Amino acid sequence: FILMPTIHTAVRDSGEVVEDAVFAGLDFDYIGPNGIFMALICATLGVWLFAFAYKKGWTIKMPKGVPPAVADSFAALVPSALVMGAAFLVRIGFSFTEFGYFQDFVVAILQTPLEGLGDTLGANALYSFMCTFFWFFGINGPAVCNSVFFIGNVLTAKQLIAFEAGKALPYIFTNPFSNFFCNFGGGGSTLSLVILMVTVCKSERIKQLGKLSIVPGFFGINEPIIFGLPVVLNPVIAIPFILVPMMNLILSYFATLWGIIPRTTGVNLPWTTPIGFSGWLATGSWRASVWQIFLLVLGMMIYYPFIRTLDKKYLAEEAAAANESSEEDDISFDDLDLDNL
């Protein structure tokens, strides 16, 4: 709040700037999408500076016998004052620059270029690849990548503002787009895979795992497949696991660009919203639901030869295990040799 702009140029509802007219206060734009990067920077640097001062012992120490809650409150005074003082110095320093405020500097230099990058096919294709690539090694890909590629939160918030204002929707790559048009059933778009496991596979191992995973898969939960099939360190399944989300991303991008499906409205639905419902709720159009089903079937076609290869391998292993079991169980008292007793 110390670093936020508090003096603003007056603008009419039509967008016309009123000359020589300003107003004081907090602009909602700076505590909305344009404040996300600022909040991240302040939270990171503020906590680091507070912890640095606290570890250095720059605190007010109370005598023994003072309640811990009171002692902790006094101990936080100097580090907190240091953080606020640093914020005031930054604010004063930027008042002598062309930006005027540190937040305007962050928006112009960092956030705006990243917004342009975040709405490109190349950046999102790289994000999709890295998410599935990490999953191949047993690492939660989105949890890692979202800590870096969080520009989607800004684009989604701005998309919602434009939608509520009745303006043209500016972005394609929002969080709902990534959640509901690239991956069905979790990372790797494994809902296509699970349906094949239940319907066409003959291996008992795969069929039972598919039955256990089909319901969670409709809600985007696929850890049973990731670690149970497994996908982790499985070169056979890794190929479609990486390829299918990438295909969904590229096809959905061009489908949106060419008007086959509408752009998402920016409404942040839970990522567990099932296929069909999610497309309709995210865009307001039934065409998006039909598109999701089309991509699901297309994903099944790509997964099919790979899961059939794995199915044959597991069938052979199960047959070998069954033969060994039958040989061990085929024991008769006639085979006992009592002569050496």
Results as ranks from 00 to 15, higher is better:
Ser203Gln: 10
Val47Asp: 06
Asn234Tyr: 09
Arg263Phe: 14
Met38Glu: 10
Gly299Thr: 09
Ile206Leu: 14
Ala75Gly: 12
Leu121Pro: 00
Leu243His: 12
Gly35Glu: 04
Lys167Asn: 09
Pro270Leu: 15
Glu98Lys: 09
Leu298Lys: 06
Phe150Asn: 07
Thr190Ser: 04
Leu233Tyr: 12
Val66Thr: 15
Ala162Asn: 03
Leu155His: 02
Phe150Arg: 00
Arg287Trp: 05
Ser192Leu: 03
Phe333Arg: 01
Pro245Val: 04
Gly25Met: 03
Val232Met: 04
Gly141Phe: 08
Asp119Pro: 00
Lys202Leu: 09
Asp29Glu: 08
Arg287Cys: 06
Lys167Ala: 12
Ala319Phe: 13
Trp135His: 01
Ala75Gln: 11
Ala10Met: 07
Ile7Phe: 03
Ser95Cys: 02
Phe94Ala: 02
Ile2Val: 14
Trp135Asp: 07
Trp291Cys: 02
Ala75Phe: 10
Asp334Arg: 12
Asn248Gly: 08
Gly15Ala: 10
Leu40Phe: 14
Thr273Arg: 06
Lys167His: 02
Ala255Arg: 00
Gly25Phe: 02
Phe105Gly: 06
Phe254Gly: 04
Asn248Ser: 07
Val107Thr: 09
Asp72Ser: 14
Ala75Ser: 15
Phe96Glu: 04
Trp48Gly: 03
Tyr101Ile: 08
Leu169Val: 08
Ala157Lys: 06
Leu295Thr: 09
Leu296Lys: 01
Ala76Ile: 06
Leu117Thr: 10
Met4Asn: 11
Val244Cys: 04
Val154Leu: 05
Val22Glu: 13
Thr44Gln: 08
Gly185Ser: 05
Gly299Lys: 01
Glu324Met: 11
Pro216Gln: 11
Phe180Gly: 00
Glu324Thr: 10
Ile60His: 13
Ile250Glu: 00
Ala320Thr: 14
Leu82Arg: 05
Gly116Glu: 09
Ala87Thr: 08
Ala24Ile: 09
Glu115Ile: 14
Ile237Asn: 03
Thr6Ala: 08
Thr265Arg: 05
Ser14Ile: 09
Pro5Gly: 05
Pro176Thr: 07
Cys145Met: 15
Phe177His: 07
Ala108Met: 10
Phe28Glu: 07
Ala10Asp: 11
Ile221Lys: 01
Ile31Gln: 03
Asn124Tyr: 00
Leu26Asn: 12
Pro170Asp: 01
Asp311Phe: 14
Gly210Ser: 13
Phe102Tyr: 06
Pro230Val: 14
Gly35Lys: 01
Thr132Lys: 04
Glu19Ala: 14
Asp335Asn: 05
Ala71Arg: 11
Tyr127Gly: 05
Leu315Ala: 14
Phe177Glu: 00
Glu16Asp: 15
Leu196Gln: 08
Val232Asn: 03
Phe133Gly: 05
Ser189Gln: 00
Leu114Gln: 07
Gly65Asn: 06
Trp291Leu: 04
Ala108Val: 02
Ala321Gly: 15
Lys313Met: 15
Ser189His: 04
Cys131Ile: 13
Glu327Leu: 14
Lys211Phe: 12
Ile221Cys: 09
Val215Thr: 11
Val11Asn: 08
Asp72Ile: 04
Gly100Gln: 01
Gly228Thr: 15
Ile139Met: 03
Trp280Val: 08
